[in-house]
C-alpha cells in the first residue's frame, strides 16, 4: 500500500532523513520507534507532503502510484491521513464544523457519524470549541484521532497517540485506533498505518504487524514490535545500532 524508497528529506536545509526505505502492505499496521529528535515526525510529514519537509531524493508510492510530487490535499483525497503530534490552534472554526468539513470533503453525507465518533472519543464537549484552542495534551490527541475516524483514510499515520493522555483515556484512544485500522476484522482488513509510539501501552490495542527503529536518518532495525520494544526497554536505543536483526 505504502512504499517508501530511499527517502532523503531536509528540514530547513538540514538533512534529517538520509535514505529511509519502508513497505507497509494492505491491512498492516507498523510502529515507528526511535529516540527524540531522530526524525520520526519528519518521516510522517514527508509522507503526508507537508511543505517545509523537502524530499531531496527517493520516491513515495501509494497503491503503486508515484505520489512524491503530489500536493498534500491530493494525497489526503487518495486516502492518506495523519493525526499530528502537535495540533495548531484553528481560530474561528469549531471542532464540529471541522468534523462536518472532513465528512463532506470525503463524500460522507451522514452527519450522525460525527456525534457518534465524538462520544466514543469523549470529544462531545469539545465540539463547540475552536479546534486546538486551549486544548490540553490529551484533548488534542483525542480530537486528532476523532478527525481521523471521520476521514477514514486507507493509510493512517498517528504521531504519538498516547503522549499526554491519562491512563483512563488510553483505552479510549487504543480502541479508536483499533477501529480505525479495523484490527478486529480478520477477512476484510484493508486499512493500514504507521504509528509512532514511545510507550508500550498502545501496542496492547494495535497488535501491530511490524516495528522499525529510526536512528541516524535511517531505519536501523525492523522486527516484531513487542520484541523490539522489550529490547529497547532493557538495553536502550544504542543497542539497536549494533543489532544484527
Amino acid at each position: 500500500m505504502l512504499h517508501v524508497e530511499n527517502l532523503k528529506v531536509t528540514v530547513e536545509d538540514r538533512l534529517v532523513l538520509d535514505g529511509v526505505t519502508l513497505e507497509v502492505r494492505e491491512g498492516e499496521v507498523h510502529v515507528l520507534l526511535g529516540p527524540n529528535g531522530v526524525g520520526k515526525t519528519t518521516l510522517l510529514m514527508a509522507i503526508m507532503g507537508v511543505p517545509g519537509y523537502r524530499i531531496v531524493s527517493g520516491r513515495l508510492f501509494f497503491n503503486g502510484e508515484d505520489i512524491t510530487n503530489l500536493d498534500m490535499e491530493e494525497r489526503a483525497k487518495k486516502g492518506i491521513g495523519i493525526a499530528f503530534q502537535k495540533m495548531p490552534p484553528v481560530r474561528g472554526i469549531s471542532l464540529r464544523t471541522m468534523g462536518e468539513i472532513i465528512l463532506r470533503t470525503h463524500g460522507v453525507d451522514d452527519l450522525s457519524l460525527l456525534e457518534n465518533a465524538a462520544h466514543r472519543l469523549d470529544c462531545f464537549y469539545l465540539l463547540s470549541r475552536e479546534v486546538g484552542v486551549g486544548f490540553s495534551g490529551g484533548e488534542a490527541k483525542r480530537a486528532e484521532i476523532f478527525q481521523l475516524l471521520l476521514q477514514r483514510p486507507l493509510f493512517s499515520m498517528v504521531d504519538e497517540p498516547e503522549s499526554g493522555v491519562d491512563l483512563d483515556n488510553i483505552a479510549l484512544v487504543g480502541k479508536a485506533l483499533k477501529e480505525l485500522f479495523e484490527r478486529e476484522q480478520v477477512r476484510t482488513k484493508r486499512r493500514s498505518g504507521l504509528v509512532i509510539t514511545h510507550t508500550g501501552y498502545i501496542l496492547d490495542y494495535l497488535n501491530a504487524d511490524q516495528g522499525h527503529v529510526l536512528m541516524n536518518g535511517r531505519i536501523v532495525c525492523s522486527g516484531n514490535p513487542r520484541d523490539l520494544f522489550e529490547d529497547i526497554r532493557t538495553k536502550g536505543y544504542n543497542e539497536c545500532l549494533r543489532c544484527e536483526r
Binding site: M48, V50, P51, G52, D71, M72, E73, A76, K77, G81, I82, F84, M87, P88, P89, V90, R91, G92, I93, M98, I101, I102, T105, H106, E130, Q147, Q151
Partner: peptide
Amino acid sequence: LEEETINYLRARGLKKEEALSLLTRGFLS
C-alpha cells in the same frame, strides 16, 4: 494566516483556497 494552520486543513483534504476561505471566515467570525 498561519502556514501551519493552512497546512493542517490541507492535510484533511481541503484545497489551499478552501482552507484560506474557511480560515478567513473563521477569522471574521
